[in-house]
C-alpha cells in the first residue's frame, strides 16, 4: 500500500507542475517569460510523473523510463535555450512593464 501512496504522490505532484506550466503559458505576457514555464516547470512535472510511473510498473522497462527521464532533463532546457537565443537574435522585442498598460495586461 505504501508503494501506491508514493506513486500517487509523485504522479499528482507531476500533474500539478504541468498544470502550473500550462496556466503560465496563457497568463505570461511575453515569449521570454513563457519559455520559463516550458523549460523548467514542464520538465519538472514530466520527470516527477515519469518517476511515479516507473515505480508503479516495477519491471525492466522502467530502466528505459529512467533513460527518458534523464534525456528529458537534458533536452528540454537545451531546446528552450536554443529557441530563446534564436528569438533574441532575430529581434523579438522584450516586454517591459513600462511599455505595457498599468496592469501590464497586453503582452507580446
Amino acid at each position: 500500500m505504501a508503494v501506491n501512496s508514493v506513486v500517487i504522490a509523485l504522479v499528482v505532484s507531476g500533474v500539478f507542475f504541468m498544470a502550473v506550466s500550462a496556466i503560465a503559458m496563457l497568463r505570461f505576457p511575453d515569449f521570454y517569460t513563457r519559455s520559463h514555464a516550458m523549460g523548467k516547470a514542464d520538465t519538472l512535472g514530466l520527470v516527477l510523473l515519469m518517476a511515479g510511473l516507473g515505480i508503479y510498473s516495477w519491471e525492466l522497462s522502467s530502466l528505459k523510463l529512467l533513460f527518458v527521464m534523464v534525456f528529458i532533463m537534458i533536452a528540454n532546457p537545451t531546446a528552450t535555450h536554443a529557441i530563446v537565443k534564436a528569438a533574441l537574435k532575430s529581434g523579438l522585442p522584450i516586454w517591459t512593464r513600462k511599455e505595457a498598460g498599468s496592469d501590464g495586461r497586453e503582452g507580446i
Binding site: 527518458v68 534525456f71 528529458i72 533536452a75 531546446a79 536554443a82 534564436a86
Partner: peptide
Amino acid sequence: RMDMFIDIAIAYALLNFIFVIAVAKYFD
C-alpha cells in the same frame, strides 16, 4: 503493455527535441 509504449515515448522525446533545435537553427 508498458514496454511497447516506452519505446514509442523514447522515439517521440528524441524527435520533439530535434524539432525545436532545427527550428531554432532555421531562425538563427
